[in-house]
Amino acid sequence: MDKLLKILSENSAYTTAQLALMLNEPEDYIKAQIKEYEDSGVIRGYQAMVNWDSVPDAGVMAIIELKVTPQKEKGFDEIAEKVMMFDEVSSVYLMAGGYDLALVVKGDTIQDVSAFVAKKLSALEGIVSTATHFMLKRYKEGSVALVDVEEPTDGREMIV
């Protein structure tokens, strides 16, 4: 895998000067490379890894399993693209296995999410069934721990 992408995917807060040092490339090259990734859509954005559980009134999240009827020609894409347009939906995945689409949905309250499922989602043509799972606690997202597990202490004690 491209080393630059790997580093940025783990932590996008490095300066281009730092990235240039780490990758042993001129800073201009790094800048150009990042721009190319952004322009071509390989890099789609940069986000802070927020632990919403620690933010008061941050709302609720649910994972929703969808069974859908694939459409002629477009298969699952058409319905997936419709579903992803809702602001409430933060992630959409096509799955292999017991159901077709997996959604991550955010709302202010459980009622909000329920209403979204009942009124907006189920109303879409092609949705066969939904199963909504509310999240109780988030432990890890995007490779980042969201709970204060005791940092594995550096077990090394010898100095020299």
């Binding site: 080393k3 000067a17 730092q18 040092l21 780490m22 990758l23 042993n24």
Partner: peptide
């Protein structure tokens, strides 16, 4: 090696 370059470059700067 990646760390080395970051550290040495930063210290010199």
């Amino acid at each position: 090696d990646m760390r080395r370059r970051l550290v040495v470059g930063s210290l010199n700067k």
